[in-house]
Amino acid sequence: MTTLKLEAHTVAKIYNRKSIFQNVSLAVKEGMSFAITGKNGSGKSTLIKILCGVLSPSKGTIALSINGVLINYPDYYPYIGLVSPYLNMYEEFSAEENLIFIKRIRGLNSDTDERIKFLLNDFGIYEHRRKEVRNYSSGMKQRLKYCAALVHQPPILVLDEPTSNLDEYGIETVRKAMKLQKNHGALIFGTNDKDDLRFADQIFSLDKLEIGN
């Protein structure tokens, strides 16, 4: 297993002179399932984007170390898989083309083709793999986002509202993936869903700025 640690030290985000959150400090280690909760507008998605390195914090620092090597912030993209409502796939491409584009841009080897097939099957969209994503339902698009996030077997899987837009089969598959991720690396997810929160080892509340179990 990879030794990893993702830490946030006194992180704050300010948008248009308005503070979204302040003084956020947390640490996520391998084998951990870490949930972020908070009421609407508390900044769950913003904090998730900051942790993934796609949005810069206004104050504070983020540190990711993998096998003792400190990764340069914000170049976390090889180590993170993100599923978020703010993330869209290329609609003019099919699911298969989207995943092959991800494979190539990430510089993954040909073994990934088998993994793509496995993921498409696992998330129940293999039969629709050649359809353009613009013809997908919102649930199918959400499933494809999971395939995209898992193609490179990331040590850290980050989920923003993990089960939104999914039917029973989709929720079951996602929860299986969440369990698997804990054995493979670390899982971070932002939600207020009580069923999802059962998967968390630690829960960080953005409203109270404290960690609970």
Binding site: K49, V54, L82, M89, I105, R106, A148
Partner: peptide
């Protein structure tokens, strides 16, 4: 199209 976040996560 909301794909800039996707691209930021890929490379």
């Amino acid at each position: 199209r909301g794909t800039s976040l996707t691209l930021r996560l890929l490379t």
